[in-house]
């Protein structure tokens, strides 16, 4: 028995080693860096343990607090809106009987594009002078003047949220569609026989049975949203790698701040402390989401 176990471990040891090297070590290094002071000796980074001062400094760090607020707005709005719209799309696609493959492919398209490409496409579409969004809205009479979507403090964050929702609708829709297809038609039939409306069906059959799928989507979307970087850089940053979260810091999410502190300011320890905060937040979201999932029994 012990020999069999040894065999088993020897088979998984290469994979285990890879996981340790590319997951465990970086996380450990991040944690160590976040409680260290960084100095440069002969142009090389050197660290000495210094305690939790970088974490306590965050409490009075205006940029961190602004980022926390912006990340909160972004995460809640983006996750909520993508869940609602994704559910709507899933319900609509579930009704399609002809050309199912084509419709699903079309729905998936935004998710197939790399986020950087999507960000670049929308950057141009939001351009105040040459962008498609202004052109359409002005031609249908919804806008009188060209709107600088990414330069206006009132529209920059909503624009970023919209693009993130647009990218993730397919992901939400496909998972929820899979859930919808597991619901037996007999249950809807039973509601109809009892004289229930479509709303009754949705409220008493669809939503309860979709709950585990909704929670999985909520969990994954929340993790994606907390870590967002690429889309915001493409829309509100710049091609020179600067990530000031323009205009006036309104799009400065955690991902941008982490990059800015490390790469632009060479403040690697402070940057690591913020990354650890994001890591903890992600764990908390994951923990509660998993707790809410129904158990097998």
């Amino acid at each position: 028995m012990a020999r069999n176990r040894l065999y088993a471990y020897s088979f998984i040891s290469p994979a285990l080693f890879v996981v340790l090297a590319i997951v465990v070590y970086p996380v450990f290094f991040l944690l160590q860096l976040s409680v260290s002071e960084v100095s440069f000796v002969q142009a090389r980074m050197a660290t000495t343990l210094s305690g939790f001062n970088h974490f306590s400094d965050l409490i009075s760090d205006g940029a961190f607090l602004n980022s926390a607020y912006r990340t909160g707005i972004f995460t809640v709005s983006s996750v909520f809106l993508s869940l609602i719209t994704g559910l709507g799309v899933a319900l609509a696609v579930n009704k399609v009987r002809k050309g199912v493959t084509l419709v699903r492919l079309a729905v998936l398209l935004p998710w197939l594009l790399p986020p950087v490409v999507s960000g670049l496409i929308w950057r141009w579409m939001f351009h105040d002078q040459f962008g498609l969004v202004n052109w359409i809205l002005m031609n249908v009479g919804l806008l009188q003047n060209r709107q600088p979507w990414m330069a206006d403090v009132a529209t920059a964050m909503p624009s970023v949220i919209w693009v993130d929702v647009w990218i993730h609708i397919p992901f939400v829709a496909i998972i929820l569609l899979a859930g919808l297809q597991t619901i037996p038609d007999e249950l809807y039939e039973a509601v109809r026989v009892d004289g229930g409306s479509s709303l009754h069906s949705f409220w008493h059959v669809t939503l309860p049975l979709l709950r585990p799928y909704l929670l999985v989507v909520l969990l994954i979307r929340a993790i994606f949203a907390l870590r967002v970087f690429d889309i915001v850089v493409m829309l509100a940053g710049s091609k020179f790698g600067s990530v000031a979260g323009a205009p006036a810091g309104t799009t400065q999410v955690f991902g941008l701040l982490i990059w800015q502190r490390a790469i632009e300011h060479l403040k690697f320890a402070e940057s690591a402390a913020i990354a650890v905060v994001v890591l903890v937040l992600t764990f908390v979201v994951s923990f509660f989401s998993i707790k809410m999932l129904p158990s097998k029994t």
Binding site: A244, G249, E264
Partner: peptide
């Protein structure tokens, strides 16, 4: 000597003035 941080500071403050939030 802290050019990276100076750029960030000026970008943030100049943009705040341009956006008239300051």
């Amino acid at each position: 000597p802290k050019s990276g941080q100076v750029v960030t500071i000026l970008v943030e403050e100049v943009h705040a003035a341009m956006a008239m939030t300051k």
